[in-house]
C-alpha cells in the first residue's frame, strides 16, 4: 500500500459546536492520496458534521482542516472544486433526466466535455437510463447517480456519507462494488458508515468517532490493540491444571471454556509451535488449533463500551 506522502485531508483540533452542544471535538485526522479512511461512530457522533466541515459547508468552531492543501476556513471556494460529496440522502431534480442532472453539476464544476458525463454514467452503470427522468429511478440507482455526481469533476477528495444507508442488500452490494472499483491512485476517500463489514472490506484505516476521536488504525491494528492475539486450542481431554502447568513467558492470559483452551499469545506465528510442543508434553490431546478471529464489529462494540485502543 503506497500512499503519497502529503495528506489530502488533514485536520488539526477540528471542533464544531452547535450553540453549547459539541458535535465534533478536537479531531486530528490525516488521509493520504490513495487511501480510504472509514469514519465509524453511532448516530450523532459527528460524522456528517465532519464531512460538511471538510466540504466547506460548515465552518469549524475551532481548529483547522486542509483539503487538497487548502484551508476549509480561509479558502472554501478553492476547496469545493477539489471535493466530491455523497450525502446520506442525496437529492436530485426529479423531473430532469439523469443526464441533465449530471450535466448541470458538471458544468457548475467547470466540466464542459460531455464525454466525461458518458464516462461517469458508464462507470456507475447508468448509461442505459441516461435519458430517463430521475423520478423513475429506484433508490439504489439514485445512489449510483449520486456517486456519479460526486465523481463527475474528478475530485481529489471524496467524502461519502453513508453511501449504502437505506438500500436493500442487493443495491448496497452494487454500490460497494462500485466503491471498490474506483480508481484510488490520486484520490483520498473518507467513508462514513454504520456498516462494519463494509468498512472492513473497503477501508485501509478506520477512525472511530464519538464526538471525539476514540481510535484510529488499520482494522488489524485496532483488533490487536484492543484484544491482543488469541489462540484457541480444542482439546480432547480438557483439564484445568494444564493452565498452571503451561508456564510460558509469551502466553499473557489463559482460560478454559469447555473443550476450548483460550490463550493470549504475543506472536502466534513464532510461538505456536513451542506452545503445541509444550501442550503435548503436558499430555494434552489436541484436536484443533486456530487463531481466534475478531471482527471490526467486536472492535467497534468494545470501543463504544469504553475499551481503550490507544
Amino acid at each position: 500500500m503506497g500512499f503519497s506522502p502529503d495528506p489530502l485531508i488533514l485536520t488539526r483540533g477540528l471542533t464544531r459546536y452547535f450553540e453549547a452542544r459539541p458535535a465534533v471535538v478536537d479531531l486530528h485526522l490525516e488521509v493520504m492520496a490513495g487511501e480510504v479512511l472509514g469514519l465509524l461512530g453511532p448516530n450523532g457522533a459527528g460524522k456528517t458534521t465532519t464531512v460538511r466541515m471538510l466540504a466547506g459547508l460548515l465552518a469549524p468552531s475551532a481548529g483547522e482542516a486542509f483539503v487538497a492543501g487548502h484551508s476549509v476556513t480561509k479558502e472554501p471556494e478553492k476547496v469545493r472544486p477539489k471535493v466530491g460529496v455523497l450525502s446520506e440522502n442525496p437529492g436530485f431534480y426529479k423531473r430532469l433526466t439523469v443526464r441533465r442532472n449530471l450535466r448541470f453539476f458538471a458544468e457548475l464544476y467547470g466540466v464542459r466535455d460531455s464525454r466525461r458525463i458518458d464516462e461517469v454514467l458508464a462507470l456507475v452503470k447508468l448509461s442505459e437510463r441516461a435519458e430517463d427522468p430521475v423520478a423513475t429511478l429506484s433508490k439504489g440507482l439514485r445512489q449510483r447517480l449520486a456517486l456519479a455526481r460526486a465523481l463527475v469533476h474528478d475530485p481529489q477528495v471524496l467524502l461519502l456519507d453513508e453511501p449504502t444507508s437505506g438500500l436493500d442488500p442487493e443495491a448496497a452490494k452494487e454500490v460497494r462494488e462500485l466503491l471498490s472499483e474506483l480508481s484510488l491512485a490520486h484520490r483520498a476517500i473518507l467513508l462514513c458508515t454504520h456498516n462494519l463489514p463494509e468498512a472492513e472490506r473497503l477501508c485501509h484505516r478506520i477512525a472511530v468517532l464519538k464526538t471525539k476521536l476514540i481510535a484510529v488504525g488499520t482494522p488489524t491494528e485496532l483488533k490487536e490493540r484492543l484484544f491482543g492475539r488469541w489462540v484457541v486450542v480444542t482439546l480432547a481431554n480438557p483439564k484445568p491444571e494444564i493452565i498452571s502447568a503451561l508456564n510460558l513467558p509469551f502466553v499473557c492470559n489463559a482460560s478454559l471454556d469447555g473443550q476450548k483452551l483460550l490463550l493470549a499469545v504475543e506472536d502466534p506465528e513464532r510461538h505456536n509451535p513451542i506452545l503445541v510442543r509444550k501442550l503435548v508434553e503436558l499430555g494434552a490431546e489436541i484436536l484443533y488449533i486456530a487463531e481466534e478471529e475478531r471482527t471490526l464489529e467486536d472492535v467497534y462494540l468494545e470501543l463504544m463500551e469504553g475499551g481503550n485502543a490507544a
Binding site: 459547508l57 471556494e77 469545493r80 460529496v85 450525502s87 440522502n89 437529492g91 431534480y93 457548475l108 464544476y109
Partner: peptide
C-alpha cells in the same frame, strides 16, 4: 424547493457563489 427535494446541499457544495 431546493430544500424540499434535498438538492440544496449538493448545490451549495459546488463552486457556485
Amino acid at each position: 424547493g431546493e430544500k424540499e427535494q434535498g438538492t440544496l446541499e449538493p448545490l451549495l457544495a459546488t463552486p457556485l457563489s
